[in-house]
Simulated scan of single mutants.
Amino acid sequence: MELKHDCIRDLLLELEENLKLNQTLSVSDIANLSSMKRYHQDDIVYTINKLNEAGFIKSFSYMGGGLDISEITYYGHQFLDNVRGNSIWSETKSQLSKVGGAASLSIISELASSLVKAKLGIN
């Protein structure tokens, strides 16, 4: 299954906006959020699982297949801060297209970070 970069960013943005302290969001809650409606539920679940493996979020499964997210981790916030701006995200995806769009989350984060630094005049 493909890990969709736009789904990663959209999910993290929605979690940041909708996830409250000491609250969880279920897959069905997330699937009903505005920007997530364009993704198939399988893509959402896969993205949640991969972001949990990467240490970007904390999620947990229930017997019977339930899946909830409890928080965005510090690493998840760092990644999100690097890809938050639409212009930076667009430029990041444009740069990724040079290699067929395939890159790891760490490469995407590094690329976006370098673009942010360049905009700020930090080398």
Rank of each mutant, 00 (worst) to 15 (best):
S35A: 10
K50F: 06
E110W: 09
L96K: 01
I107S: 12
K58I: 13
V99Q: 13
I107A: 14
E16C: 07
E71M: 12
N86K: 14
T92N: 00
G66E: 03
L25H: 01
E17T: 11
E110C: 11
L111D: 05
I69P: 04
C7F: 07
S35K: 15
T73C: 05
I88D: 02
Y46Q: 05
W89T: 06
A54H: 04
Q23S: 11
S61F: 09
T47F: 00
V116L: 04
F79Y: 14
G85F: 07
G100H: 10
D10W: 00
S114R: 12
L13T: 10
Q95P: 03
N52T: 11
S59Y: 07
S104D: 13
T73K: 04
I57Y: 00
S59Q: 11
L12H: 09
S104Q: 07
I88N: 02
D6M: 06
E14C: 01
L51K: 01
M63L: 11
S87T: 05
A102S: 11
D68S: 07
L80N: 02
V27T: 03
F56M: 12
S28H: 10
A54S: 14
L111V: 10
G66M: 01
S26Q: 03
G76I: 04
H77V: 15
S94H: 05
M36G: 01
K37E: 15
S104A: 09
S97F: 07
Y74I: 14
S59I: 11
L105E: 03
L11T: 04
N49Y: 09
S34L: 04
K93V: 13
D81C: 08
I44T: 00
K4A: 14
L51F: 03
Q41A: 13
I72H: 06
R38A: 05
V116A: 00
A31P: 00
G121P: 06
D29T: 03
G100Y: 08
N49F: 11
D43N: 11
S94C: 08
E71W: 03
L25W: 00
T73S: 15
S28D: 10
T92E: 02
I44S: 03
D42P: 07
A31V: 00
S114C: 10
D81G: 14
V83R: 01
K58D: 15
S94I: 08
N49A: 14
G121E: 08
K20A: 09
F56H: 06
G64M: 05
I107R: 12
G85Q: 09
H5K: 09
A31Q: 01
D81N: 15
A54W: 03
A102L: 15
S61C: 09
D43R: 08
L13N: 09
Y62C: 08
L11A: 05
N82Y: 09
S70P: 06
E17D: 12
S70K: 15
S94W: 05
S114V: 04
